[in-house]
Amino acid sequence: MARITPKDRFYTKEHEWALDNGDGTVTVGITDHAQELLTDIVFVELPEKGKVVAQMETLAVVESVKSVSDVYAPVGGRVVDVNGRLEEHPELINNDPYGQGWIAKIAMEDPSELASLMDAEGYEAMIAQESH
């Protein structure tokens, strides 16, 4: 059932992903594992464009029927774009967490922060550890 963890991006311990767009920005979302834990996502509080966040600072909030979870910024920087479709269709995160369910784009302050994140293999190993 679980989706393949894409190898083209980086992962945090808090289950966010960051895709390096190669232009100084990263696209950010939450992982398949995270959306599975949350189940039916019914609301996403998006950041304002232009907001400046530090690495692992709260970037957005996703809510399921029962729970409220922070989404942390995998890297610090300025929010240059947000996925406005999530306002009407928060379930995109459940249905396509690595694609149409992206949350925001951040212009990186310090691209070297990416090095502190995990790759797909490392993230999958962490999940496997957690479930034991």
Partner: peptide, 11 residues
Amino acid sequence: PVQYDTVMAEH
């Protein structure tokens, strides 16, 4: 048990 499937589906 808080849920088996999803809260939405069970509701």
